[in-house]
Write a protein that binds this DNA or RNA. Sequence first.
DNA 1: GAACGGCGTTCAGATATGTGAACACTACGA
DNA 2: TCGTAGTGTTCACATATCTGAACGCCGTTC
Lengths: 265, 265
Amino acid sequence: MAAPTPHDASAEVGDARSSAVKSAARTLQLLEALAERGGVPARLAELADELGAPRSSVHALLRTLAASGWVRTDPTGTLYAIGLRSLLVGTSILDSDPYLRAARPVLAALRDRLGETVHLARLDGDRVVYLTTQESGREPRRIARVGRWLPAHSTSLGKALLAERGDLPTGPLAALTPRTLTTPEALAADLVRTRERGYAVDDEENTPGLRCIGVALRYAHPVLDAISCSVPVDRMTPERETEVASALLAARTQIEDTAPVQGVF
Amino acid sequence: MAAPTPHDASAEVGDARSSAVKSAARTLQLLEALAERGGVPARLAELADELGAPRSSVHALLRTLAASGWVRTDPTGTLYAIGLRSLLVGTSILDSDPYLRAARPVLAALRDRLGETVHLARLDGDRVVYLTTQESGREPRRIARVGRWLPAHSTSLGKALLAERGDLPTGPLAALTPRTLTTPEALAADLVRTRERGYAVDDEENTPGLRCIGVALRYAHPVLDAISCSVPVDRMTPERETEVASALLAARTQIEDTAPVQGVF
DNA sequence: GAACGGCGTTCAGATATGTGAACACTACGA
DNA sequence: TCGTAGTGTTCACATATCTGAACGCCGTTC
């Protein structure tokens, strides 16, 4: 699992009612099942059980996936592991997404200006997925968050997006720390304050010791992306919060001005 | 494209002869086609043309992909873009692969010891895909290579692997710089020297100004993973080369000792 | 050492998908 | 205003996949 959180928000792939192409849905389920195992090989029977599909069906699919390079097999052909194609396809977004490309230099400058780690994340259902991180050199250890996700309601990024969009997560609000907002009422109230303030605040709601400020990027309608800055609690005074927030808002404007016009949704 | 090279080594997904599940193969082609466009939305007709499949077939597939979260659609449902699920699935390898997990701390220590950037990459056909990079703070700009790839024959990583495996790339040997080895004879001779030396050397063969040393990790049979250290040419003296190589060989032993026994293939 | 259980693989029929043409809709230009 | 060209969508039939059972294989157990 790439997820640092206990709750897996991924929907069932196969539960689409009527007009779903069965083998396509199963192909994706297979990739997800293999991904969760990492490099650990899987046997046909395990995967068939996991998908709830006959062995023979899964067998044909796995041969197809293997032939296309998305799945690797051992020399005997009875063990399967996810191939590198999925990594290449997955990370290709990071190289080619035009918004990300526009945002990256601005984020680097922002990191240098504030001396703190900054992120850009995109909403995916009830969670935010980190697309790029510019780290300050000051952190004790490097936490590369690209490709990871957190529940939207527990992050400044997610709350900035929810405030701008005006909706609430559909699922339950998992508690990652004692300070996570776990009721719709508390979250809604926080979103009101967020709109008033003009930026979102996460006060150790997903990671103890870390306070974050986030703002949404408004080039998409409804908004999808947001940027944030994480600051250790002992460096985050009220004056510092204002300083960070105004730097983020300036960066927001800069990104929105340089971002492509058409596009993301 | 995530690729920094001119030659696309990816095989055709759909070309499997007989026992391929057509809709599964097309699903993967669709993901690859969407990935190449990054966040830029695609229309149904474009994708159908690209796959060489009827619009109606692609339509059904896209609805399935969209229902499962692998593909996003705009509010009207006529524009498609790759979703974040592929990023999550792709990067999950980076978190859960047991070999990578074993190697990472060793690589971090190696980076600290040498003060230079070190990589771990895995062979995928004729190319090497970077799985992790530990950067020295000395580089002018951060080049996050995770998920990118280079032709095996142009890197110390790839040459270390080829030397250990005893095979040559099947495709043509693309020239990335004037120093890239582009004939099978030159490459084979280099691999002989590599075996004698005990480590592989890349002398500005993929990136001008960069000299790299690589060694293969022998926990898999045949070998799949390798580690390397990149050093700017002006810091790379003969003594330094010996120093870097012996540090890499020590790290190799350390990783091989801590790596899981069963596994990757 | 023989029976057992589990596994991967294969096959022919049942079932779901792929196909191409037809339809409805939009945007654009005449 | 109308026609045109392009698009996304739907439908019924031809085609391909899915299924469950059967087979052969291996390692284990009794």
